[in-house]
Amino acid sequence: MGNRIFLSDPTACTAEVVAGARLLAVADRVGPDRAWRRAAMDNLMRVVVAMFAWCMPLLLLAIAIGLAVKAMPLISTTPLMDLLTSSEWRPLKGEFGFLAFIVGTVEVTLIAVLLAVPFGVLSGIYLSEHSNTATKRLAVPVLDMLGAIPSVIFGIWGVVLIVPLVRNGIAPFFGVASTGYTVLTGGLVLSVMVFPLITQVVHEVVRTVPNGLRDAGLALGATNWETTRKVVVRKALPGIWAACILGFSRAFGETIAVLMVVGNVVQIPWNPLQAGYPIPALIANNYGEMMSIPMYDSALMFAALLLLAIVLAFNLYARRVLKRMEIRAN
């Protein structure tokens, strides 16, 4: 009771004193006889808070199990290899071969990543190594915004700008007639969606390289670029690799933007100027009919499971690389 803290100079108060004062005020109010209540509250909240936290790994598990259970009827009647390597897609006859969709997804994703990696990595390095403060101050919010723009907005941009570009520019250049709704269009739109992610991760990773290494490089007479290339990038290489993997897995599951521009024709796209049909687009386009055709729902849930498995594997790998770098940096 009656605890008071006197501050002669309020502006000089430290964090500790303020926190302490706040707590003493609390202690004043509750009094010693309520100590058991405070302890009980603490114990209760410990359980509640831990429960919420452990729900997260469980949610991941629940998603995987939920999808697997729904996919079971299909997996148990058709061997896994057939599902993955056959390109016969006749839902009405009960034939589900995912090859065309898998090839479509991989093709779109690869185009996106191959385009996004050089730009993303270079601008990430530029931001952390070679740009001035003003550029940085402008770039960080811009990257945030680019990352926050919803997928459907990228889609509309693709339909309005990139589809005509492919139809009237790129396809005629290669002597191909095209509607503009192609695998290449999907890759182009996706690459812009992956830019901010790769740039941000590279920017973060390159910043963790200790300054002493840079100083050593420059002191030996290397130019800025030589220091970047031979010292900084070499040191940050695993992180840059992880950034690319993260970009890949982001692009892999992207749905609406790709669906809007990729054409959605069930075929193996032999060249990028043909229409393709990636897995996410397959799920999104057919959820309406899946309950009316036997096994169709099972096939679509299998597709979702496939997507989850691949994205999960890539993500875990990338996080592991990043974590190892973090540990080494400290």
Binding site: M56, I63, L67, R250, T255, Y287, M301, L316, R319
Partner: peptide, 30 residues
Amino acid sequence: SVGMIRTALDVLFGVPSIVYGSFGFVLMLW
């Protein structure tokens, strides 16, 4: 536990929204 939960959150962040949608559909059926 801290590392495990943070990793789980990071991985969940990377799970495509179409997978969440499919899972939601399964959940709704159940």
